[in-house]
């Protein structure tokens, strides 16, 4: 059975007197422990799609299920990392992680909470920054802390909405490697849905890419990534297979963009 399943999902937004169709007839499924990226130009509805899985939004038509059950709202089987504002700025880094764990496990004693938080913060390389407030950290470090909180809540599904979209190029590479390492080396592989507009990021991290086209948001193509794991970012990027594969994807991507005059920014 698939972990996540979308069946003929349509999502409409009411905009004054107009109805705006964000998603139309979306169907796909994700296996347990699979890493799936959703890629597309901005405005293609990929974040709307994620909000359905987060439980912050509900489909106008169709079904969204986890383990066969319809999503009725947010749940502790899922943790989310947003592009901005995942963390609460008034809590220190440690307090943010502790607060996250508390929502999942209310009975843990204070000492254990702090211990688990520190363990996860050291896993993402934030030892020594536990008592800093988010605004005292760089954008990249904030995202590390957000990932630490999400993992510390031990969800079975990790939802990531352009988590590295606001991080500079160099740190983005480092964060991708970190995420790859954490995910590939974990014992219980989490199911990950990763929204991005960066093709290299999607290929490096995913088992499968779901490509979307805009107006209305539809699935354009599903592509399995053939490269074996564990992957190494810099080695992979240099290989001939990778370059050919990437070219193929970009060609289909360009088709979509050229269909829409004034295509949006896509990191190629």
């Amino acid at each position: 059975m698939s972990k996540i399943e979308l069946q003929n999902v349509t999502l409409n937004y009411a905009e004054r007197n107009n109805v705006f169709t964000a998603l139309e007839d979306i169907s796909f499924s994700v296996k347990e422990g699979e890493f799936v990226s959703i890629i597309g130009a901005s405005g293609c509805g990929k974040s709307s799609l994620l909000s359905l899985l987060e439980g912050l939004n509900f489909p106008t038509a169709g079904r969204v299920t986890i383990n066969g059950d319809d999503i009725k709202g947010t749940g502790d089987d899922r943790a989310v990392v947003f592009q901005h504002y995942s963390l609460f700025p008034w809590m220190t880094t440690r307090a943010n992680v502790v607060y996250g764990i508390k929502q999942v496990n209310k009975k843990l004693p204070k000492k254990d909470l702090g211990q688990i938080a520190d363990d996860y913060l050291s896993k993402v390389g934030l030892s020594g920054f536990e008592n800093k407030y988010p605004l005292q950290l760089s954008g990249g470090m904030q995202q590390r802390a957000a990932i630490a909180r999400a993992l510390a809540m031990s969800p079975s599904i990790l939802l990531m909405d352009e988590p590295f979209g606001a991080v500079d190029a160099k740190n983005r590479k480092i964060l991708q490697e970190l995420l790859l390492e954490l995910w590939e080396n974990s014992e219980d592989k989490k199911t990950v849905i990763f929204v991005t507009h960066d093709i290299d990021e999607a290929i490096l991290l995913s088992d499968r890419i779901i490509m979307m086209s805009a107006n209305p948001g539809r699935i354009k193509k599903e592509i399995s990534i053939p490269f074996p794991r564990p992957r190494n970012g810099s080695k992979l990027l240099e290989s001939r297979e990778y370059l050919n594969f990437r070219k193929e994807i970009i060609t289909s991507f360009f088709n979509d963009i050229s269909e829409r005059i004034g295509g949006e920014e896509v990191a190629l």
């Binding site: 987060e54 912050l56 947010t74 989310v80 947003f82 504002y85 609460f88 607060y99």
Partner: peptide, 12 residues
Amino acid sequence: KILDSAKTLNVG
């Protein structure tokens, strides 16, 4: 987004 983040944590 702050409130969304709190909601996804299942805050009481």
